[in-house]
Design a protein around this nucleic acid. Sequence first.
DNA 1: TCTGGGGTCCTAGGACCC
DNA 2: TCTGGGGTCCTAGGACCC
Length: 424
Amino acid sequence: MNVVALVDCNSFYASCETIFKPYLKNQPVVVLSNNDGCVIARSSLAKKVGIKMGVPFFEVKKIVKQNNVKVFSSNYTLYANISSRVMGVLKNYCDQLEIYSVDEAFLILNRYSERSFFQRAMHIKKTVKKWIGVPVSIGIANNKTLSKIANHLAKKDELGKQVVELLDRRQIEIALKVLEVGDIWGIGSRISKFLQSNSIQTAYDLYFSDPRWVRQHLGVVGERTYRELHGEMCFPIIENPEAKKQCRVSRSFESYVENFKELEQRIISYATRASEKIRSDQLQAKRITVFIRSNKFNKKNQPYYGDKTYSFISPTNDLFEIVRWAVKALNHIYKPGIKYKKAGVLLSDLSSEGIYNRDLFFQRSEKDLLKKMKVNRVFDRLNSRYGSGTICIAKENYEKFYLTRRKNLSPAYTSSFYELPTVN
DNA sequence: TCTGGGGTCCTAGGACCC
DNA sequence: TCTGGGGTCCTAGGACCC
């Protein structure tokens, strides 16, 4: 039987901001999404003053002011860097590690230790806090679903140890009784509504449901969750994730855009970023989708959503080809007179670079391909060395359109020589 | 006045094949 | 009036996750 530990950083983005500003320790902290739109992370003090996850920032401005909440724009460069440091520490303490998200990892703990699982988890927790400065909670169980539940309980134990072990049947059943069914990993809002309408309120109720009924109404995915509640392992630990299958770049605009030229500049910008991303992963795309939409929250203006997908004749990651097709797609879906609020580019059917079937009617010369690759490489090197946007397609207008509103951005403490923290 | 961004998996239905 | 059986592949849409 495996022992799975889920290590989850507490209020991760907020914790990252606090590392370099220790004076924030007793002050509520929140981090906002792009465009400073929504609250996407809250420190425990911020939770206490009543700021909910995902709320639009303007709705809580009053609470923020009244409680002297410190507000940050998201600084993904910083968070990614801190995340990799945390994962680097975790690697030392387990046989297998799955990095599940920027702030979470599943660890397989072996049985060859004199110390108990609980003691080892406590040690991991203390080490991460001491070395990196990030507080974590740890749940220990026999599979992912149960370790998620253990972690959920650990998070609630704010003043305690924040390590919870659910390894025996009796403990598990007690835990399931107090857990709402919608708090189970894999049971989202739709399904939990459905379950509640069938008198299944708690995880315990689901645990004692008829497996055939679960299979019939929740499909194979729900069945796996059900089995994991009963102690089976249905979701394996994935140490080396497969390559990405799609890559998306999309943004909401700070204000409405109606003009085609401006929309075009943005699409070129997103297509450029998406092509950069897949080149850096040595991938190529078979298809490209472009979408544009009006403001889905505003009921007064005319609603519109348009998208268009093209398949490339042969998979590509060439900047110019991707941008050309993105613009073509935009021309196809653009409707004048609409107040646009969001747009995006999606590259999909990704595969490893350099592997493709030759097209019978469209033969590219090797020389031509090599030349294109060279140009792309130079483009990427310039931008990586001198900063993104140093070189761009003339129509793009990088400065103006890629950067979004970020009024309270903290420095890139760990990844830029110009922004290192100073110590007095 | 203000409302994020980027992923995965499963399923049903259509088009096609022999 | 009546029209087989067994597959595959692709896509859109729905659900979920962080």
